[in-house]
């Protein structure tokens, strides 16, 4: 079975601006895949290329093996997309909007009506079925976008920031629903600003920045690329921070509190305690905190920005046209080394 999404060196240019820069990504069938990135990273451009709203400038893009331009009908038939913006037909009650959408996918009229009711119930706005889109609340509009994406029973569900600006209850409802769908076999591509969302839902995430793929990994792998901080409370305030082994990347003393940055807090902590006791420090308490995915994300995208800026500056000074290479290396600990 071909991957749900496969892009190779995908490029989209708007004049001078390169919205997608040789983006190669693979999303396997049945995966829950997250696309993370700051505003302008190219996430929506990527999605719109798959569904036919953006024409690629170069490279390849396939959905379940179907080229998004040459085999656009098969590719689009497999996709249900809930976009970031509200782009719903205002002329008809929402139930009919869903019937029309199902009809465009070739669903017979009777079945389209049944499906419309079913998805409206599933997203919890069935009682609003005869209302027009403009009369719905913001949260209901968001639910309708999801219902419209589901009414065609897609194999690939694309959610472009589905929880942006919605309340906590709706966010949790949506999380529950998309998790169910994924468990039922639907491949899901989710773009989000909320790191917690990606961490909670996604099997793998790709971090994008300025149209490039920065890295692809599971949330746990990403978190593993960060460092942990062991905070040690001391019985008395020492004169200076202790000299520790190379496992300590950075050591900071603040009064009677010592903070040591290490790779793996859980395994290093006993050794650190032994070393401190051997040096005569009396320990009152200890706390280990992991680097959050959010910190990793910020670190990766900021490093990418620096890398691009540096590359651009070098290109400008050397007259060199070489591309900045993809950054797929761990953050912080390998870059900064031992304190």
């Amino acid at each position: 079975m071909p991957p749900a999404i496969e892009t190779v060196d995908l490029v989209k240019e708007y004049g001078e601006l390169r919205a997608l820069q040789e983006l190669s990504l693979t999303v396997e069938e049945g995966e829950f895949f997250g696309l993370l990135g700051p505003n302008g990273a190219g996430k929506t451009t990527f999605i719109n290329t798959l569904v036919g709203l953006v024409r690629k400038t170069g490279g390849e893009a396939r959905v379940f093996g179907y080229d998004v331009e040459d085999d656009y009908q098969q590719a689009r038939d497999a996709i249900g997309v809930a976009p970031q913006e509200f782009n719903v037909d205002r002329f008809f009650p929402i139930r009919e909007v869903l019937e029309h959408k199902a009809g465009y996918h070739g669903v017979p009229a009777d079945e389209a009506a049944e499906r419309a009711d079913e998805v409206l119930k599933r997203v919890g706005i069935y009682d609003k079925r005869n209302e027009r889109f403009d009369w719905l609340s913001g949260g209901m509009k968001r639910r309708l976008l999801l219902a419209r994406a589901l009414v065609t029973d897609p194999d690939l569900l694309i959610l472009d920031e589905p929880t942006a600006g919605v309340d906590v209850q709706l966010r949790h409802d949506l999380w529950e629903l998309v998790t169910e769908l994924n468990e039922e076999g639907t491949t899901i591509l989710l773009t989000t600003h909320y790191i917690e969302e990606a961490e909670r839902l996604c099997d793998r995430v790709a971090i994008m920045n300025e149209g490039r793929k920065v890295t692809v990994a599971t949330p746990d792998e990403l978190k593993g690329r960060g460092t942990d901080t062991i905070a040690v409370g001391l019985e008395s305030t020492p004169a200076s921070a202790p000299e520790l082994g190379p496992y300590a990347h950075e050591t900071t003393l603040s009064g009677d509190r010592l903070e040591v940055r290490v790779d793996d807090g859980g395994s290093i902590a006993p050794r650190l305690l032994n070393d401190l006791e051997a040096r005569g420090y009396e320990i009152a308490d200890l706390e280990i905190s992991r680097t959050s995915l959010e910190e990793i994300f910020v670190d990766l995208t900021e490093r990418e920005d620096r890398s691009v800026t540096r590359s651009t500056a070098e290109s400008a000074s050397d007259g060199d046209e070489s591309e900045t290479s993809e950054t797929d290396t761990p953050p912080k600990r390998e870059q900064e080394g031992v304190a």
Partner: peptide, 16 residues
């Protein structure tokens, strides 16, 4: 449909 972008409902569908 273009102005309000709901023509996307048609464009993103498998209609030839």
């Amino acid at each position: 449909g273009r102005w309000n972008e709901y023509i996307h409902e048609v464009i993103t569908s498998p209609l030839s």
